[in-house]
Amino acid sequence: MAQEAVPVRGARLGRAAGATGAEATVHGVVLLLPHGEPVSTRRQSPVAAAAARLLARRLAREGRPEGLVTHVVRYRYRGWNGSASHPVEDARWAADEAVRRYGDVPVCLAGTGMGARAALHAADHPAVNSVLALAPWLPEQRGRACPDPVKQLTGRQVLLVHGTNDERTDPELSYRLAERAKKINRDVCRFEVHTDGHGLSQHRAEVLALAADFVLGAVFARGYSRPVRDALAAPPPLGLRMPLAAGFGASLRH
């Protein structure tokens, strides 16, 4: 049987949100990497892209006064596709494109599920200064000696967030990755959203507030809220199992 040809298409950046327009000066960029599937050469899921736009709009609104622009990355294919790691290539292309458009500004990679894994892998791009990984998909590495790499996270600000009741992506695997990353990079922390699932919808307001606090603090080096500072400073396991408090974001930066 003839093997099905992989369609040839290019990655793209979605419409910019935030500090846009002729008079706007961009000082930072967030690239949103949506969730996908383990194997697929279909086009990106519109549902996953729409979910990423929700976070993109929140970050753009919060960061507009400081010159933040957000883009949702439109993958070539919705699948990771084994060793091809298509979304990682697309994330690196997107970082290159951000530099081409906006110059030498810090870039944050913010992903969900498969997109979170792509963000973690692509953190070695020289423009990337931070990574936000929400419910990262980190499949078991059966039969392989090496788990997902962490060396590329050195020198980056890294936040992982995972629901304790996530049945689609294993929160224990994100803890193990964070634990390995913390050994080589002190600027790694992880929050647990108790009783929440993969979509982090039960505590959406708190998760969005945490994401905005971390991203704006990392991109503009303006400091974090007390809970994030405490998580970064605490040794494992405390700083990697930090509970996200109900009402987070109601009174930040005290």
Results as ranks from 00 to 15, higher is better:
A2T: 13
Q3C: 08
A5Q: 14
V6N: 04
V6G: 07
R12N: 05
R15S: 10
R15I: 04
G18A: 02
T20N: 06
A24E: 13
T25I: 11
V26C: 04
V26S: 02
H27E: 05
H27C: 03
V30N: 01
L32V: 11
L33K: 08
P34I: 11
H35F: 11
P38C: 13
S40G: 14
Q44R: 05
S45R: 01
S45M: 09
P46Y: 05
P46C: 08
A48Q: 02
A51T: 10
L54V: 14
L55W: 00
L59N: 00
E62S: 08
L68V: 10
L68W: 00
T70C: 06
T70E: 01
V73A: 09
H86P: 00
H86F: 13
E89V: 13
A91M: 04
A91T: 03
W93I: 02
D96M: 03
E97H: 01
R100E: 02
R100P: 02
Y102I: 02
G103T: 00
A110K: 06
A110S: 04
A110H: 04
G111K: 03
T112E: 14
T112P: 00
G113Q: 06
G115Q: 14
G115D: 13
G115A: 15
R117D: 11
P126C: 08
A127K: 00
A127V: 03
V131G: 03
L132M: 07
L132G: 13
A133M: 12
P136S: 10
P139Q: 14
E140W: 09
R142F: 09
R144G: 00
P149N: 08
P149V: 11
L153W: 12
G155Y: 08
Q157E: 12
Q157W: 11
L159H: 06
L159V: 08
L160G: 12
D166G: 04
E167H: 08
D170W: 05
P171F: 08
A178V: 06
E179W: 09
K183P: 01
I184W: 08
V188S: 08
H194T: 13
H194Q: 13
T195V: 14
L200D: 08
S201K: 13
A205N: 11
A218F: 00
G223E: 11
G223T: 12
R229L: 12
P235I: 07
L238G: 00
G239A: 10
L240N: 05
R241H: 09
M242F: 15
P243Y: 07
G247S: 09
G247A: 07
G247T: 06
G249P: 07
S251G: 10
